[in-house]
Design a binder for these strands. Structure first.
Length: 1114
RNA sequence: GGGGGAGUAGCUCAACGGUUAGAGCAUGGCUCUUAUACAGCCCCGGUUGGAGGUUCGAAUCCUCCCUCCCCUACCA
């Protein structure tokens, strides 16, 4: 017998039970064994940053990942099930710094890089363990490391990285190595478990990638002015800029640059970054722009003509007008010519000034903002740098890597760049160079990690060239051009990918066209050690492997030996320069973390000789990640690296989804009170509710996640639960068991055959949707099925499950419901692994011989159910359901309750003869809407009129301006039906296929209609009908009373009914059937005051009923 | 600043140029039911952001304006 099921499930507790069952029975391991060696489905997990606990936003993507893995497992596919952790980079560093209370890089150096890097590793292990536990809670089936082992490894690493430690692989084999080396070997085949991007293998493979880039001449050192975060002390690459833009208020400062050759006259220049004025080198004007000389009081200024009104304060008089090019070469006195840094930058070889501030022409000068004369500081802006370089201007770089003004800048030296604006303005006022100060709000880049406003700094960084952008359409490129430009090669590669949603392809393409070279260096500590050895002789050595490092090492190897390829140990090694033969050290930079994530197809899916059994998992069939940002990050790095190494795509299909927002439509934010922690969500709403919510979200839109949304999602699941609970309750009462013989499907009621056909169709539809990676469409199918299972199949079948039902029919109903539920649990298992498992365990595992002991070990049911499909029956049933809807509408319009039986229902149904099982279906309708008989009438009936609906899309173009007349005729029912089926109306003749003939009710009767169906009810109530209605009303009241009294379903009760004589008479005929339905014995008479009483207003009079206790002792 | 979207019921979103703009949620009302803290139905709710234009007909196409979002960008 089935285990009893509460009607109010504790979903959360149930999920924990299921987790225990899976663990005890090693269900996942058995699933893997079951599919091992079969056709593969290769999923590549995008690494989650192991830096914090997992959030509900991670849960969205992880729900998709698990969903599709489970689905393909049910398709019998072999899989890798490897989760990934992203480990290296600034994310982790910033948090470790925060924990230590550090404010900048000098603190790290003082603390010790080795210790700092070790803490970074420990933090990764801490959160990898945590996220592993959370992911398991989510139901995600992966080849997980034991979280306790990860924590133990972390603790051993903290104690002494060189100590020998033994850990158990996920396959159960003990492996011994030093703590540091074991950490570096995580995710490798011998240890199993999640891959970690800090692994030795991952790092060395990036080396080989970089060496390959170098071999092809694509790796170079750039000297440029880059966005720079002073707090983090590192440049920010173009890939990282997106999230960092925010509105910011800055000073809008207008200053005077006195002209050397025009005494008393000054240029007016505008800037929002006062600190860059110390490094001013030139002032740029537009060649074709017009400039004016104006007088204000005693002073004379030059500025753009179009800007004068806005930029000048107070009245002015225009004295002269010139083109920008006429100003070229004018010399002016710089704002801070007395600074040593300026003097030395301008000095020639002999120490005398070789350069003077002057006006230059620049095509990018515009007239939208400022004064039309642009302050140029090549050391403080990328565009300024480019201009300065092309004109051979001196460069002045005022900041060190922490944003502190360098020596040589007088009183400003040693101050933080963020604090020098005011002193500079003061100083300018002092020097009579100040003109005006306002406040400007503009979009300004900030550090994506720590939020510090970026500055621009002149630095050396390392880049991978993305190749030329040719000024011709792509299809006209020659193969040679494509071979020379990586970006076009990537563009070719991405054509082979199925992008879901489709706009992903365009977006990636757009990024590829516009992207700059890939800046891969970071002046930090925790990350990939770039294998670049930049020799003073001009030779750049790039190593491709640990072996090459060993081979070429000339010193420091002993210090490195036994360590992961991280700073500081790897920095100890010096190699022999291939150019000059001298020892050369590694550059101190670490790598861009997207290199770490981009190499994982190669580090986790070895191919060729490296493949474990000669078969490669590369390329992946599927990847899925949140798309905002990833087009320039993970997707990009995957594609770039795979294109360089193999010139083919690393994945065949990409499914992108948007962001998780709070219920209020804003990003989740702790301080806004709309954030929900994953753990809290899991333990309060349950993960299946969450997964159901996620599956029902439109992936291309942001999902609004919250408690109300969860309640709504849970509702549909409770409908299913109620069906299940009903089934189990009655199966237990009937002691029904799936092993009992049931009538053959063909012999069952049409209702049974219909729901089985329905579930067969569901299996097929959901399979198709999952294969198209459309979880939403699949969820909608399932949702629709649950709705019909509950509100039609079960609703119409309820009586069939009762004890007094026909035994054969009852057996058929039980068997049908059982099969439908069993199939449904399998179909929804990928989305809701717990709920489906819980139902399956109870109704299948306990009682079906030979059934797998988990729903997740069952195959996808489409093939098993195929034979049950019956399209004609489904179409007919839909008509019946619509008739019921119409009849209900009529009842509610006339105010006649469904409990009140009606004599007749008239039904006009075009094509009624095409319906299969017509009589049986009409019986269902009769029962459902409580009418004694249904009479079919033709559309010629006196009850309906005909109406003509012109099919506008067909006739619109043809008729043009005649349309209004035709439509008016249609509205007013003015038309003539011709013998050949055509229709004359509004002065034109419409062919039969240009119109639809509708049956519509004649006014004056109670009718409802819908697409040709017309339903009319007979509202006349005879005395018998009223009496029967009263009986049902009484029955209902007794059931209510039973419920109030908390009587068990199976208990017999005694009921006293206090009714006037008229009511007694009316009810008399039906008392016996009411007794049966309500499992009671009815006695008319006074209700004792002690009983639970209920008052009912019957048609035949007011009655009071009272439960007088149980009739039969239990 | 450049490019692309989107503005439709209180909220979240639908609606090949086709005449009465629909769903879900929320509010309110009703109903069904020992599946009993389930569910169903109905009502209410709209100048389709605004103004013009094209068309027999516009939420839909065009122009301008307003607002928001996304992508992109160091314009000083």
């Amino acid at each position: 017998m089935f285990r009893p099921v509460s009607s109010k499930p504790d979903l959360v507790a149930q999920e924990h039970d299921i987790l225990n069952i899976w663990r005890e029975r090693r269900t996942f391991a058995r699933l893997r064994a079951q599919n091992a060696g079969r056709e593969r489905w290769s999923f590549l997990d995008g690494p989650i940053t192991a830096n914090n606990p997992m959030g509900v936003h991670h849960a969205w993507g992880r729900a998709y990942k698990d969903l599709f893995q489970r689905f393909w497992a049910m398709q019998g596919r072999d899989q890798r099930y490897q989760n990934g952790f992203d480990c290296q980079g600034l994310w982790v560093e910033v948090n470790v710094e925060k924990d230590l209370g550090f404010t900048n890089k000098r603190d790290i150096e003082a603390y010790g890089i080795a210790e700092f890097v070790s803490l970074c590793k420990q933090r990764v292990l801490t959160y990898a363990a945590r996220q592993t536990e959370q992911s398991i809670r989510l139901g995600m089936w992966m080849d997980w490391n034991d979280p306790h082992e990860l924590r133990r490894l972390r603790d051993r690493l903290a104690e002494d990285p060189s100590q020998q430690v033994t850990i158990r692989s996920t396959a159960g084999i003990d492996v011994t190595d030093t703590a540091e080396m074991l950490v570096g070997r995580l995710g490798m085949p011998d240890l199993g478990g999640s891959y970690f991007t800090f692994s030795n293998e991952n790092n060395y493979l990036i080396w080989s990638f970089l060496a390959e880039c170098h071999r092809r001449g694509w790796l170079y050192k750039g000297h440029d002015t880059m966005p720079w975060c002073a707090r983090c002390g590192t440049g920010i690459s173009q890939h990282e800029m997106t999230e960092g833009y925010a509105d910011r208020e800055d000073p809008g400062l207008t200053v005077k640059f006195p002209l050397v050759d025009h005494p008393g006259e000054s240029l007016l220049v505008w800037t929002t970054t006062p600190w860059t004025l110390t490094s001013n080198v030139a002032a740029a004007v537009g060649k074709e722009l017009r400039y004016v000389k104006v007088r204000q009081g005693e002073e004379i200024f030059w500025l753009g003509r179009g800007m004068a009104k806005r930029a000048l304060e107070g009245p002015f008089k225009v004295l002269e007008e010139r083109l920008g090019q006429e100003l070229e070469g004018w010399r002016y006195t710089g704002p801070f010519d007395d600074l040593a840094a300026v003097q030395s930058a301008f000095a020639g070889a002999d120490g005398k000034p070789a350069y003077e501030h002057r006006v230059v022409v620049w095509d990018q000068v515009g007239e939208e903002e400022g004064t039309g004369i642009v302050h140029i500081a090549p050391g403080c802006g990328a565009e300024d740098f480019a201009l300065g370089k092309s004109l051979g201007l001196p460069m002045i770089a005022p900041l060190d890597e922490s944003g502190i003004v360098l020596p040589g800048f007088g009183a400003f030296s040693g101050r933080d760049v963020r604090d020098v604006a005011d002193p500079i303005i003061e100083s300018l006022k002092h020097r009579h160079r100040f003109y005006r100060l306002e406040t400007v709000t503009h979009r300004y880049p900030h550090c994506w990690r720590c939020g510090t406003p970026l500055v621009f700094r002149l630095v050396d960084e390392w880049y991978i060239s993305m190749g030329a952008v040719y000024d011709v359409p792509r299809e006209q490129l020659t193969p040679e051009q494509v071979d020379a430009s990586l970006r076009y090669q990537i563009m070719e590669v991405i054509r082979d990918i199925k992008w879901i949603p489709g706009f992903g392809y365009e977006r990636e393409l757009d990024w590829l066209v516009n992207m700059h070279d890939w800046m891969i260096s970071k002046k930090r500590y925790w990350g990939l050690a770039l294998p670049i050895y930049d020799c003073d002789c001009g030779t750049i050595n790039v190593l491709g492997s640990r072996e090459e490092l060993a081979e070429r090492a000339v010193e420091g190897w002993a210090e490195f030996e036994g360590h992961s390829p991280h700073r500081p140990h790897v920095d100890a090694v010096k190699i022999r320069c291939s150019g000059c033969g001298q020892p050369v050290g590694r550059i101190s930079d670490v790598g861009n973390p997207w290199l770490d994530a981009g190499i994982v197809p190669f580090s986790t899916m070895p191919h060729g000789a490296a493949a474990v059994d000669g078969k490669s998992w590369f390329p992946a069939d599927f990847v899925t990640e949140s798309f905002p940002g990833q087009f320039r990050n993970w997707f990009y790095s995957l594609l770039a690296m795979s294109t360089v190494l193999r010139r083919e795509t690393p994945f065949k299909a990409l499914f992108g989804y948007a962001l998780v927002y709070g219920e209020d439509g804003r990003p989740m934010h702790k301080s806004w009170g709309n954030a929900i922690d994953f753990d809290e969500a899991a333990e309060r709403m349950g993960v299946d509710v969450m997964r159901w919510m996620f599956a029902n979200a439109r992936p291309e839109d942001n999902i609004l996640f919250g408690w109300h949304a969860a309640d709504e999602a849970r509702r549909r699941l409770l409908v299913l639960w109620n069906v299940y609970s009903f089934f189990v309750t009655y199966a237990r009462l009937a002691e029904w068991d799936p092993r009992q013989a049931a009538p053959a499907v063909a012999k069952r009621a049409p209702l049974d055959r219909w729901i089985l056909s329905r579930v067969a169709r569901l299996a097929n539809a959901v399979e198709m949707e999952f294969k198209a990676y459309d979880a939403l469409a699949a969820a909608k199918e399932i949702d629709g099925f649950i709705e019909e299972l509950s509100t039609w199949y079960l609703r119409r079948s309820r009586k069939r499950f009762a004890r007094n039902a026909d035994p054969t029919d009852r057996a058929a109903a039980f068997a049908t419901m059982h099969q439908a539920l069993e199939a449904l649990t399998r179909i929804m298992a990928p989305i809701m692994p717990f709920l489906s498992e819980s139902i399956y365990q109870n109704i299948v595992v306990t009682s079906v011989a030979g059934a797998p002991d988990s729903v997740h070990l069952t195959p996808w049911p489409t093939d098993e159910l195929k034979g049950l499909n019956d399209r004609a029956l489904q179409a007919s049933m839909e008509v019946a359901m619509r008739v019921v809807d119409l009849a209900r509408t009529l009842r509610s319009q006339t105010g006649i309750k469904v409990r009140q039986p009606l004599a007749r229902l008239w039904l006009a149904m075009p094509g009624a003869d095409r319906l299969v099982e017509r009589d049986a279906l009409l019986e269902l309708v009769k029962d459902e809407v409580n009418v004694k008989s249904i009479e079919l009438i033709g559309d010629e009936s006196a009850l309906v009129d005909r109406r003509v609906k012109p099919l506008l899309p067909k006739i619109g173009k043809k008729l043009g301006s005649a349309i209004p007349a035709v439509m008016a005729a249609a509205r007013e029912n003015r038309f003539e039906l011709l013998a050949d089926g055509s229709v004359l109306m509004g002065g034109v003749t419409l062919a039969a296929d240009e119109v639809e003939i509708l049956a519509t009710p004649k006014p004056g009767t109670v009718v409802a209609h819908d697409e040709g169906l017309v339903v009319v009810i007979d509202t006349e109530l005879t005395a018998e009908l009223r009496a029967e209605g009263d009986a049902r009303e009484l029955q209902r009241a007794i059931q209510d009373a039973r419920k109030e009294a908390g009587v068990e379903l199976d208990d017999e009760v005694k009921v006293r009914v206090d009714a006037p004589a008229a009511a007694r008479n009316a009810l008399e005929e039906y008392i016996r059937s009411v007794e049966i339905e309500t499992r009671s014995t009815i006695v008319f008479g006074v209700v004792p005051p002690s009983a639970d009483t209920v008052a009912v207003e019957l048609d035949s009079g007011a009655v009071t009923i009272g439960l007088a206790g149980k009739a039969v002792a239990p």
